[in-house]
Nucleic acid binder design. Structure first.
Length: 937
RNA sequence: GCCGCGAUGGUGGAAUCGGUAGACACGAAGGACUUAAAAUCCUUUGGCCCGAAACGGCUGUGUGGGUUCAAGUCCCACUCGCGGUACCA
């Protein structure tokens, strides 16, 4: 019977659904295992073949674990808040929720067709009030906690208040407002005036990871720096734990390294420099304490609080002008144009070691947000200081013997110190240590650790996001009572900012908090005595995605984010799969969020994702036709790719993207091409054989025989404009979901980026067809040793592959086993049944049908994973004891039909090996004709 | 600049602990079946050389060195490509 994949796939998808086969219980005696995919943002374009790559891999692993007897949690949901739906709403007035729900529906239908084993009853979407209830709840907890840097743990703000009451005599006399202002400096979720990335085009601020090279990651719009009052999360407080935790999780080294760089720990020292004519010093941060003797000037960031104090009257005008210039520069200009700029403040600092007076400058190459926003400049050993010194003609004092600083600075931390008083003659490393000791002992500074990681800006001036459960009283924020959550996103007439520049929630009528009656009321009623304004910003995209993995454990819990029991059972995500582009965003925020919940005792593990694998991106593989533009061109003639370098066409053709869906194995479907777009309706071709007539006279009957037009190709990003988007639905219609699943794995290693190239898909499909044919008639006969060896080789290989996430190498193993069994004409149940069981994680539908053709009851997806019996694997070999040099004896092992003297001769004649073996006694030497394979000592 | 990853036939890639490099698949060439095509099946397929033939010889994993009885794999130096990140003191 023919392999009718669409019938098989439909039949089994319905059977699984009917039996609720993928529902997972939180109560089980089985060991637990949690496999998670990064949930997608449901974009309007639907899934393309690149999206399911990771999902297929995690699905294989989940199914394997399930067959190994684990209770496997494998859920899916949607990161439903996002800019595209909102931009669409602004343009069309359609509520983003409508768009989002439509897109989700499409995603689900596409995902279902691929046959994933998701427990859809646990689906979450971040825009669902039942879900964002807990996003808001977590925010309230962050508002009500502070970070105790001694205990390295979040603690209730009430404990801090109690401490203030006890220890600070002024506390009691402060007004309520002033108390709140003071506490704001400690809260983990806090309001602050900070320099933010403001994107005028999007009308919102963005987090650092949402900006790349001065442009917004979504949309690519320019971003400028602005000071605004924003909600922030004190992620930086967790920097040491976020760094240290990396050592305890099983992530790829490159991803951990990316996070380490992003967190950016650097050990150094804070040092105080006295100011000439003033009595309070300034504090700088340096990692090169050894170079204090070479400090010839100081530099402040333009935004540094020291600027005001250190600007002299004579320099005031120049400094103000510079500050104004810096302020108007966008981030993008700053990056593009890196010329040296700066201005003298007029003040001098005193070098604490040389007592030299050194000028203090202001320049934007020093960043306000890092260290103390002020530096000591050592032009001889820092390239940025060097450029600045050359520009302003400041002295350069070399401190390392033999370093030539006439052309450039010597930045390396190596060499012998000179010109450095008591440090002379020391290695740089020792000099740093000695200087740290010196400044600590003399009190001019202290050893500190600095982190690059900044607090996350948590406000977005947008509509489509979680509302903050916050209202304002006397200018200070207060949280809504927890039992009033969720605070639902209100309806608005427009999704744009208001005319007064308020965020879109400013349009909402029902958007005020009646404190006494604990309810939302019309904003007309705001009197700031009992009815107060609510926060108008919404939360950023990462709010909803930071703890969603916990919600899957207990998705219908109305009392808590996740129940104690559910969390104790599942513990944490055992395997997390997703793209590495989330390394410095989602994966930092999630770890932070989880550590916070851990501090509160809500979750039992302080790291959310035990093992993490990054799947590579699938790029597009574009196809081209080549329009002839040489002499006498009509614009209608297309040259086959193999001919374009011929002299008559070279440099006379123009490549044009052609829809990859009308190209198969780089051969153009010319009828489909003519029908594709009106401009190609009358296209003429020069075919691969150089002829242009479309039919060839048939030597037999004169029937039409199509000619081949070859297309060129290139690897590009998968996108509509390149006509290289391949929809999984089309692949499934043509080949079936099982072929799609197998082929996506066959394409190459999971972690690697690779182009989607359908040129090999026929081979995989052919394998399934052939395999299916073996199940035509099943016999109960005893299997032969050859058949058993094939099977057990396969069991060993596939088991190893899945456990090591090397899914691509399993497909050839299946093909080899299938070829071997095919050659043996094997149709025995004892072999074919386990074969189907092994295939089930990769190609569940056909495996299910095969399993039932073997006469089995139940689902193959529940069948126990077969065990490999090594006894069947032993090759037929012969062992010979060998005498060597008259004394050394060892065993020589070789294939059974190899003549003994041949093999012996081989070993003994191999000069280098013979020398090596002399005087040694290897256990055995494995030999095949012509070569020594292995020497076991 | 810094950090990370990679480079193997015409193509995608395999070689899992240092032990027969090129598995498997695609493509290509030839053949069988067919009026013809599709489908299916069989053979060949890294390069070079010898030969009537061989389970024949040489060469071969980006480049140049090294370690080893043995290197795609380990070490050193370099070239190119990809990804991340950047006035982070």
């Amino acid at each position: 019977m023919e392999y009718n994949f669409s019938e098989i796939e439909q039949q089994w998808q319905q059977a699984w659904e009917k039996a609720n086969a993928y529902a997972v219980s939180n109560e089980s005696q089985k060991p637990h295992y949690y496999v998670l995919d990064m949930f997608p943002y449901p974009s309007g374009a639907g899934l393309h073949v690149g999206h399911p790559l990771g999902y297929i891999a995690s699905d294989i692993y989940s199914r394997y674990k399930r067959q190994c007897g684990f209770n496997v949690l494998h859920p899916m949901g949607f990161d439903a808040y996002g800019l595209p739906a909102e931009q669409y709403a602004i343009q069309t007035g359609q509520h983003p929720e409508v768009t989002t729900n439509e897109n989700i529906k499409r995603y689900i239908s596409q995902l279902r067709k691929i046959g994933f084993c998701y427990d859809w009853s646990r689906e979450v979407k971040t825009c669902d009030p039942k879900f964002y209830h807990w996003t808001q709840w977590a925010f309230i907890q962050m508002f009500n906690h502070y970070y105790d840097t001694v205990a390295q743990k979040a603690k209730p703000i009430s404990e801090l208040v109690a401490r203030f009451e006890q220890e600070d005599p002024h506390w009691a006399s402060l007004s309520e407002h002033d108390k709140q202002v003071r506490l704001m400096n400690y809260r983990i979720a806090y309001l602050a005036d900070t320099k933010v990335n403001w994107c005028p085009e999007l009308g919102t601020v963005l987090a650092n990871d949402e900006v790349s090279e001065g442009l917004s990651v979504r949309g690519g719009f320019p971003v400028e720096q602005r000071v605004m009052r924003q909600w922030c999360l004190r992620v930086s407080a967790y920097a040491p734990r976020l760094l240290e935790g990396l050592d305890r999780i099983d992530w790829t080294e490159s991803l951990k390294e990316t996070q380490r760089n992003w967190i950016g720990r650097s050990e150094g020292a804070e040092m105080q420099f006295d100011i000439k004519g003033q009595n309070s010093p300034i504090t700088i941060f340096t990692t090169r304490a050894d170079t204090v003797f070479g400090v010839t000037f100081m530099v402040l960031a333009p935004e540094s609080e020291y600027v005001e104090r250190l600007t002299t009257d004579e320099q005031r005008a120049a400094v103000d002008e510079y500050l104004a210039w810096v302020k108007h520069r966008t981030e993008r200009e700053r990056i593009a144009d890196r010329k040296v700029t700066g201005v003298f403040s007029g003040s001098y600092a005193i070098n604490p070691l040389t007592n030299a007076e050194i000028p203090i400058y202001i320049s934007d190459y020093v960043l306000a947000g890092y260290g103390t926003g002020a530096i000591m400049a050592v032009p001889a050993h820092d390239s940025r200081d060097y450029a600045f010194a050359k520009h302003f003609n400041l002295p350069v004092v070399p401190l390392i013997e033999g370093a030539d600083v006439s052309e450039q600075s010597f930045d390396a931390k190596e060499g012998i110190m000179m010109n450095s008083g008591f440090l002379n003659g020391l290695e740089v490393k020792d000099a740093i240590a000695k200087m740290k000791e010196y400044i600590t002992n003399t009190g001019i500074g202290r050893v500190t650790i600095n982190y690059r990681l900044r607090d996350a800006i948590f406000s977005r001036q947008r509509y489509w996001g979680e509302p903050f459960p916050i209202y304002y009283k006397d200018g200070m924020p207060y949280t809504l009572p927890e039992d009033c959550l969720p605070l639902q996103l209100p309806e608005v007439k427009e999704y744009k900012p208001t005319v007064t520049g308020e965020p879109p929630l400013g349009h909402a009528q029902l958007w005020a908090w009646d404190e006494a009656n604990r309810k939302i009321v019309d904003k007309k009623l705001i009197d700031n005595r009992s009815v107060f304004p609510l926060e108008l910003c919404t939360m950023p995209g990462f709010a909803g995605s930071s703890a969603y993995y916990l919600r899957y454990m207990d998705p219908h819990n109305g009392e808590a984010l996740v129940g104690r029991q559910a969390n104790d059972y599942w513990q944490q995500v055992d395997l997390y799969l997703g793209g590495s582009e989330h390394a410095t965003g989602h994966l930092i925020y999630s770890r932070f969020w989880n550590k916070f919940l851990f501090d509160l005792g809500i979750v039992c593990k302080d790291e959310p994702f035990r093992k993490l694998i990054n799947q590579g991106m699938i790029q597009g593989r574009s196809n081209f036709v080549y329009r002839y533009i040489g002499e006498g061109a009509t614009g209608n003639l297309y040259i086959s790719y193999n001919l374009i370098n011929n002299p008559e066409y070279k440099d006379k053709v123009q490549p044009i993207h052609v829809n990859v869906n009308i190209v198969h194995n780089d051969v153009l479907d010319i009828d489909a091409f003519r029908a594709w777009m009106p401009e190609y309706k009358n296209a003429q071709f020069v075919f691969a054989d150089g002829s242009s007539s479309e039919v060839e006279d048939n030597p037999y009957m004169g029937a039409a025989m199509p000619k081949m037009y070859m297309c060129g190709w290139a690897v590009e990003k998968m996108s509509k404009s390149m006509f290289n988007v391949v929809n999984p639905d089309d692949v499934i219609a043509k080949y079936g979901a099982d072929t799609l699943r197998l082929y996506e794995m066959f394409l190459g290693p999971l972690e690697m980026s690779k182009p989607w190239d359908t040129n090999g898909i026929d081979g995989v499909h052919r394998f399934l067809k052939k395999a299916w044919n073996m199940y035509e008639q099943i016999s109960d006969a005893e299997p032969t040793p050859d058949e058993l060896r094939s099977l057990h080789k396969l069991i060993k290989k596939v088991t190893w592959d899945i456990e090591n996430f090397s899914f691509n190498t399993s497909i050839p193993a299946f093909m080899i086993a299938q070829n071997e069994l095919y050659a043996l004409k094997c149709n025995k149940r004892a072999i074919l049944e386990p074969f189907a069981v092994l295939l089930a994680p990769y190609a569940p539908h056909i495996a299910e049908a095969m399993y039932h053709r073997c006469g089995c009851e139940g689902f193959v997806i529940d069948a126990a994973w077969p065990e490999c019996n090594e006894a069947y694997l032993a090759e037929d070999t012969q062992k010979y004891p060998v005498q060597f040099n008259g004394k050394v004896r060892f065993t020589l092992e070789c294939a059974k039909d190899t003549p003994k003297d041949e093999v012996e001769k081989l070993v003994l004649n191999h000069e280098d090996t013979a020398r090596y073996l002399a005087g040694k006694t290897p256990k055995k030497v494995i030999v095949v004709p012509g070569r020594i394979v292995n020497i076991v000592m």
